[in-house]
Amino acid sequence: MNTTTTHGGRTVPPRTVPDTPGRRTPGGFAGAVASEWTKLCSVRAACLCLLAGLAITGVFTFYSASIARINGHPVQPVGNAAAASAVISQFAVVILAMVAVTSEYSTGSVRAALLWVPRRHRVQAAKALVAAVVAFLGGAVFAVVGTAVAWGAFDGRASFDAGTTLGQILAIGVYQALVAVLTVGVAFATRHPAGALSVLVMLLWGLPSVLLGLGGDRLAAVNDRLPHGAGDHFMRVGADAPYTSATAVLIVAAWATAAHLTGLYVLRRRDA
C-alpha cells in the first residue's frame, strides 16, 4: 500500500515488505508433504528403524538360507529368503510410520500441524505418502541386502534369475509401503504408540501365527486374506497361492485403505 497513517499527530509512512520475484511458499498438499518429509528426516528414529530393519533382514536371511542348505530343501529362488524376512523386518517400518504420528500426539505438536494445514485429510495423506515412499525405498534396500546375504548362505541351494529377483525386490518394497500406509491409519485411529503397536503386532504377526499354528484349510484361507498372508503370496515365488499376485496386492491395499479411512474418521471426529 502507498498510503500513510497518522499516529500521535505525526504522519508515519507505512511499512512495506519487498517482494521477492520467483520465490513462493509451498502450500496445499505439496506444502504438507514437504513439511512431513522435513519432520521425518529431522529425527533419528527414522534412521534407527531403517538400520534395524537392515540388520534384521541380514540375520534372518542368513539363518533361513543356512537352514535350507543344511536340511537339503529343494532349490528355490534366492529372493524367497528376503521375502520371508519381511515377516520381521516389516516391524521396522511399522515403528517408523507409527512414531511419525504418535510422537506428535504425545508432544502436542499435532495441534500446530493441524493449524498450519487446516484440512485434516491433507495432514494424514501427507504422512502416509512420505512414510510409504521411505518404506518402499527401505524395503527395496532390505531385499537387495537380504538377497546378497542369502546367496552366499544358500551355497548353491538356490537359483538366481535377474528378472525374477528384481521383481521380488520391487514386490517387497511395495509391500513395505502398504504396511506403512496401514500403520499411519492405525496410528491416527489409536493416537497412542502402545495401542497402535498392539493392533499391528496382532494383525501382522500374532493372528497369522495362531491361524497357521492351528492348521486346517479354513484357517489357512482366513490367513490368506490377512495383510501379511496376502503379502507373502505376492513377494514369494514358486509358492502354491490360492490367487494371483494382483489379487494379493489388492488385498493388502484394501487393508491399508480401510485403516487409512478409519484413522481419517477419528481424526475428523475428535479434537487433537
Score class of each variant (00 low, 15 high):
Met1Ala: 13
Thr3Ala: 15
Thr4Ser: 15
Thr5Met: 14
Thr6Arg: 11
Gly8His: 15
Gly9Trp: 02
Thr11Cys: 04
Val12Ser: 09
Pro13Gly: 02
Val17Leu: 13
Gly22Met: 12
Arg24His: 13
Gly27His: 01
Phe29Leu: 10
Phe29Ile: 02
Gly31Arg: 01
Ala32Ile: 06
Val33Met: 04
Trp37Pro: 10
Leu40Asn: 07
Arg44Ser: 15
Ala45Gln: 03
Cys47Gly: 14
Leu50Tyr: 01
Leu51Gly: 05
Ala52Val: 06
Ala55Gly: 11
Ile56Asp: 00
Gly58Glu: 05
Phe60His: 08
Phe60Ala: 15
Thr61Pro: 09
Thr61Trp: 06
Tyr63Gln: 14
Tyr63Gly: 13
Ile67Leu: 09
His73Arg: 13
Pro74Met: 05
Val75Met: 03
Val75Cys: 00
Gln76Ser: 14
Pro77Phe: 08
Pro77Gln: 09
Pro77Leu: 12
Pro77Asp: 13
Ala83Pro: 03
Ala83Asp: 01
Gln90Asn: 10
Ala92Gln: 00
Ala92Ile: 03
Val93Arg: 12
Ile95Val: 15
Ala100Lys: 13
Val101Lys: 05
Val101Asp: 02
Ser103Arg: 15
Ser106Val: 07
Gly108Phe: 02
Ser109Trp: 07
Val110Asp: 03
Val110Asn: 04
Ala112Lys: 06
Ala113Val: 01
Leu114Lys: 01
Leu115Tyr: 09
Trp116Thr: 15
Val117Ile: 11
Arg120Glu: 04
Arg120Asp: 05
Ala125Ser: 10
Ala125Phe: 03
Ala126Ser: 13
Lys127Gln: 07
Leu129Trp: 01
Ala131Thr: 01
Ala132Gln: 08
Phe136Ala: 05
Ala140Glu: 11
Ala140Phe: 14
Val144Tyr: 13
Val144Leu: 14
Ala150Arg: 04
Trp151Pro: 11
Ala153Met: 04
Asp155Asn: 14
Asp155Phe: 08
Asp155Val: 08
Asp155Arg: 14
Gly156Phe: 07
Ser159Met: 08
Phe160Gly: 06
Ala162Val: 15
Gly163His: 11
Leu166Ala: 12
Gly167Leu: 02
Gln168Met: 13
Leu170Lys: 06
Ile172Val: 05
Gly173Val: 02
Leu178Thr: 02
Ala180Tyr: 00
Val181Gln: 00
Gly185Thr: 05
Val186Lys: 03
Phe188Lys: 10
Phe188Val: 07
Pro193Arg: 04
Ala194Asn: 10
Gly195Trp: 03
Gly195Glu: 05
Leu197Tyr: 01
Ser198Gly: 12
Leu200Tyr: 01
Leu200Ile: 09
Val201Ala: 14
Met202Lys: 07
Trp205Phe: 15
Trp205Gln: 14
Pro208Lys: 13
Leu211Asp: 13
Leu212His: 10
Leu214His: 03
Leu214Thr: 05
Gly216Tyr: 09
Gly216Ile: 10
Asp217Gly: 14
Arg218Ile: 15
Leu219His: 02
Ala220Ile: 04
Asn223Lys: 04
Leu226Tyr: 09
Pro227Leu: 07
Gly229Lys: 00
Ala230Tyr: 07
Asp232Arg: 09
Arg236Ser: 11
Arg236Leu: 11
Gly238Lys: 09
Asp240Lys: 13
Asp240Glu: 12
Pro242Cys: 00
Pro242Val: 00
Pro242Asp: 02
Thr244Arg: 11
Thr247Asp: 08
Val249His: 03
Trp255Lys: 04
Ala256Tyr: 06
Thr257Ser: 09
Thr257Lys: 01
Ala258Leu: 12
Leu261Lys: 01
Gly263Ala: 10
Tyr265Asp: 11
Val266Arg: 12
Arg270Cys: 09
Asp271Val: 07
Ala272Cys: 07
